[in-house]
Design a protein around this nucleic acid. Sequence first.
DNA 1: TCTGCCACTTGATCCGGATCAAAGTGGCCC
DNA 2: GGGCCACTTTGATCCGGATCAAGTGGCAGA
Lengths: 246, 246
Amino acid sequence: MTELFLEERNCDTCPIRHRAVCSKCEADELELLDSIKYYRTYDAGQPVVWAGDEMDFVASVVSGIATLSQTMEDGRTQMVGLLLPSDFLGRPGRAIAPYDVTSNSDLTLCCFRRKPFEKLLQDTPSIAQRLLEMTLDELDAARQWMLILGRKTAREKIASLLIIIAQREASLRKRRPTDGSSFELPLTREAMADYLGLTLETVSRQVSALKRDGIIELEGKRLVTVPDFEALMAETGDDSDGGLPV
Amino acid sequence: MTELFLEERNCDTCPIRHRAVCSKCEADELELLDSIKYYRTYDAGQPVVWAGDEMDFVASVVSGIATLSQTMEDGRTQMVGLLLPSDFLGRPGRAIAPYDVTSNSDLTLCCFRRKPFEKLLQDTPSIAQRLLEMTLDELDAARQWMLILGRKTAREKIASLLIIIAQREASLRKRRPTDGSSFELPLTREAMADYLGLTLETVSRQVSALKRDGIIELEGKRLVTVPDFEALMAETGDDSDGGLPV
DNA sequence: TCTGCCACTTGATCCGGATCAAAGTGGCCC
DNA sequence: GGGCCACTTTGATCCGGATCAAGTGGCAGA
């Protein structure tokens, strides 16, 4: 949903670099970006930053999955953000990370040192504007998520999450999700539970129930096939138009 | 938390106008702002816009309370935003309102027609930057809210909401909340329930319980006094440092 | 003063999801 | 090939908050 400066087809490294090449931005931006960027990789399950840490970079997800989460003293955790390739991590002007960031798979980030990136933002209104766009998208997603957390049943929550993942995977490929398409669940049952404000047992039970009812098919534990998107959509409790325009 | 261009002490009309006067922005901005702004007032309970409507303005809350909410087909409602004076409403570049906006009290908005405002944004990086700041604040608030919705007990939810309201009221007055301070609850029990993903009965019970336990005092139904902020904070389940830096 | 309404409180019961417990599955290292 | 470990499923029971229901208090309007 939030693709920063990206046209996916041609971008094999850093999303920002690509956009700098392909449109809107001038050549010297590209050079500046090149001069301040670097790549980092993380293993599955590895922390990227802890809440409260100083974060001296912002980054764009190149490949893999990362999550933002908050943990209470007694260990209850709530995921508050899900970062897929092309999503943006970090906040210009803010040194302290407000959430734990964790890689949920092998993860590659394209990082920019924060100070030069902020300077770039100031000098390049089009990038600042794009960042505002992306932040508004994130805010929409967060608010849609709030409806899920506050008012939906466990079954509706699972269905909603599956739809969200399917749509985001499809949009990475510049497609609409279609009947019969499959996707890999990028999250463990526990991570799904942390996303949805449930326990992992409830997630497991509801996934099994959706499978039993023929709404989804499962190959192994992670590969989901949706024979009929409308049927899955109907389980979310949302309006049939699919909620927010994306 | 999100005070746009505002220094409250001197601002008796529109927040943006004031900031244009007092700092960062030049005189011609002020004139442009003056030329595109206008005021609107709403009665308590009146809709400001419906989700899906075209919204041809952005606005700043001058006085009163407004809420953003989403409603499912079957009537379940989740509040996704709470707008206090100085908060910003609307999204440059986006014509369609994604949520219902409702006034929860007599409400005055300082509105800007969207197109000229967008032009102003493009021409005035400092305003664009400020808007990004505010959007990031809103995103933080939304994510804190997600933790409340997903993982907290009813009692913790109520305590968290009281703290949030107390802090925001205090910050409008440029103060920190102190022991013994009072504030008016700007929401009905039902609106609180919609905020917290509870029913109004549960809200009522938990407010009564906090009162019974001496954590809060109530005068009438709406006027809350907090004898000991630490004690209330302890009921939220958050770290003692009060969560996010604000 | 009475009436009706609205916001709220309180009580009784129910149920969905949490919790506690025990197996089952599969990937991978030796 | 064996065994371990992380992840998942399934079962039994419990409990917090929803639901259904009744009652209170304040206040606007007749």
